[in-house]
Simulated scan of single mutants.
Amino acid sequence: MTAPRGRSAKRPASARPASASSLRIIGGRWRGRKLRFTAAQGLRPTGDRIRETLFNWLAAELPGARCADLFSGSGALGLEALSRGAAHCDFIDTNPESLAQIRQHLSTLDATSQARCHACNALDLLAAGAGPWDIVFIDPPFGLQLVEPSCTLLAACGALAPGASVYIETGADEPEAALPADWLLHRDKTSGAVRYRLFHTAA
């Protein structure tokens, strides 16, 4: 399959020309830091309000956690996790420009030793046996039905530590993906056109 590039919104990519934007870390040791990135076509960082809610949900699990940001885009979720005490994050994306910016952010924050950037398709990395991770962020391009195969591989390939948490962000109108039967839904919210959920996996 053709690897998706970054995070895409529901609107056509042509409607969002590339421009300079900033990402704000909203909690933890880098709280308030603004990181510049190029708003490439289709890039859709998770908004501040949703990130704040998500990381409140994860507050007790973050210290020392090993994380994966499977469709990292701007790196908003993984960088926020590191700021709030995660020990390590793997950033995975097929867009080399996005990963170059994440590497620059990690250097700026003196956090290169806590992360690794993977320029590849997230599904290929999972199939290769990456992990295990304590927290996984799944925020793929909307409408491409990447959630179900990602979750299937996470469960089947030993990519999750016992009792791991999996965050899933999709378009609010997307069909329900079939998820592993032993994953327990912990939180489920919708904000505008975005649905976001947190699952706990078997310990």
Rank of each mutant, 00 (worst) to 15 (best):
P45R: 03
G42A: 01
F37Y: 13
G32L: 09
S21V: 01
I50W: 06
G27I: 13
G27V: 08
G32R: 02
K34N: 09
I26V: 06
T38M: 07
K10E: 14
F37E: 02
R49L: 07
D48V: 08
R5N: 05
A15I: 14
K34T: 12
G28A: 10
R51P: 10
Q41L: 03
A13G: 08
R49S: 05
G42W: 07
R33G: 04
P17Y: 08
I25Q: 01
P45K: 00
L43D: 02
G6I: 06
R44E: 09
L35Y: 05
G27L: 06
S14N: 07
R51H: 09
A13R: 07
Q41A: 09
S21W: 07
T38A: 08
W30L: 03
G47M: 01
R29A: 13
T38R: 00
K34H: 12
K34A: 12
A3F: 09
P4L: 05
G28S: 00
D48T: 11
P12I: 13
A39S: 06
P45H: 06
R11M: 11
L35R: 02
R33H: 09
G28E: 11
S8L: 10
R5W: 06
G27Y: 09
L23P: 04
R33Y: 14
I50C: 03
T46S: 09
K10T: 05
R33V: 15
S14K: 03
L23T: 04
R11S: 15
W30I: 11
S14Q: 13
G27R: 03
R36K: 12
G42N: 01
R36L: 11
K34D: 13
Q41P: 10
A13E: 14
L35V: 10
S8D: 03
R11E: 15
I26R: 03
T2P: 12
I25K: 00
A39I: 10
T46Y: 10
F37D: 02
W30A: 07
I50R: 01
R29Q: 13
S8A: 12
G6R: 00
P45M: 10
L35A: 03
P17W: 08
T2D: 05
P4Y: 02
P45D: 06
K34F: 04
A15E: 15
S22M: 13
R5V: 09
G28P: 14
K34E: 14
A15K: 09
R31G: 04
G42M: 01
D48Q: 01
Q41Y: 04
P12W: 07
Q41T: 04
S19T: 11
A18D: 11
R29M: 13
R33N: 03
F37G: 02
A40K: 03
S14R: 11
S19I: 01
K10G: 15
K10L: 14
A18N: 01
S8W: 08
I50G: 00
R29K: 12
K10W: 14
E52K: 00
L23E: 05
A39V: 03
R16C: 11
A40C: 05
A9D: 02
S22W: 09
S19R: 11
S21A: 09
P4I: 00
R11I: 15
